[in-house]
Design a protein around this nucleic acid. Sequence first.
DNA 1: TAGATTGTTAATCGATTAACAATC
DNA 2: TAGATTGTTAATCGATTAACAATC
Lengths: 205, 205
Amino acid sequence: MNRDIPEFSLQRMPIYLNFLRTLPDDGTYNYISSGAIAQALGLGEVLVRKDLAYTGCAGRPKVGYPRVELIAALEKFLCVNDSKCAVIVGAGGLGSALLSYGGFTNYGIELSCAFDNDPKKIGTYIGGKPVLPMDELNEGCKKYGAVLAIIAVPAAAAQTTAELLIKAGIKAILNFAPVQITAGDDVKVINIDVAANLAILASML
Amino acid sequence: MNRDIPEFSLQRMPIYLNFLRTLPDDGTYNYISSGAIAQALGLGEVLVRKDLAYTGCAGRPKVGYPRVELIAALEKFLCVNDSKCAVIVGAGGLGSALLSYGGFTNYGIELSCAFDNDPKKIGTYIGGKPVLPMDELNEGCKKYGAVLAIIAVPAAAAQTTAELLIKAGIKAILNFAPVQITAGDDVKVINIDVAANLAILASML
DNA sequence: TAGATTGTTAATCGATTAACAATC
DNA sequence: TAGATTGTTAATCGATTAACAATC
């Protein structure tokens, strides 16, 4: 759904959307300037204008960007209105926390279920979502029409899990296991290693 | 502890370390080439050599890099051997999951305690770490000598929390609340917005 | 009108890749 | 020796920033 935009601009789109949605709806911010957005988010103001240009929402000299229209343009850009289905593999601490987190719907993402191989968890509901056995992964993903998946299994199982997911039709994976998952070019992967991020911070001190 | 290295190279250091540590210790990988590392991690091989050069560990033409020495060099580079103390603010689902996660010690990071304002949680232990009341945050951080913090509170409380942490002497913050936290130049911040990452993936499809 | 702000074009900066000499 | 691999220098690529004209 979206074309030729620099990778880094795309990454900032949800940040803009998020920020604009938090502004009070009392008329104070019917218009907001790129400078104000830039300052709030710690970015350059030219950068903000360049990014926002990709949404197709035009700003007005002297007044700024119309907030409501800009939010709508960002939502359209990020396809927030076509609902997409996601599954989680691994219902441990992190998996459970994400199942209970409601923030995905802000981006039109519906978390439908989790998969795990712990008999104590299978059949239960976490955050209102069923925990299914691993051997129903393929079937389950297809039934729900899932295109997104979150991997929250131990490192040793992550790559295998990714391959199962890809076979089940998943097109993009958010991986929290502390290994780099690799996949073909037709599958997008973002790896988030929490401990590694803390280590990076530590070594910047 | 580390000097003039490109930001992006620094970010890959834990990835290299992680990968090298997972290799079997049976003599198969006494030496490993930049090409092999590159392939396993989906990077360019020249890039790998450039990155590894920053660690000061020299590779040998024709054989590659000595694995054990390279791991040691990466550990030294990332200061894995000086123990650093971290705290978590927010003992909800995500905070609890991180308290129970043991992976921080791989990078010399000791998670000492959590802070929360829920009376039901205060006084309990999660993952063996005490949950302290929010109003002991300043005192607690100082007592433990914490320099790192993880924010896992609701968005509305995140910026305020960050400011309390900074006052308590915290120098780097990993923020999971879905808002961009801003801080002075002397405090490092990494913001990780899980839902936003999933939204980015979704819009790349 | 004057001033503020957008949008665009050119310049800069930094990261990655290509080319290739050095070396074991 | 020949071949594989490192390490470095130069070229490329992409992202950010600076400069400035357009506009309300």
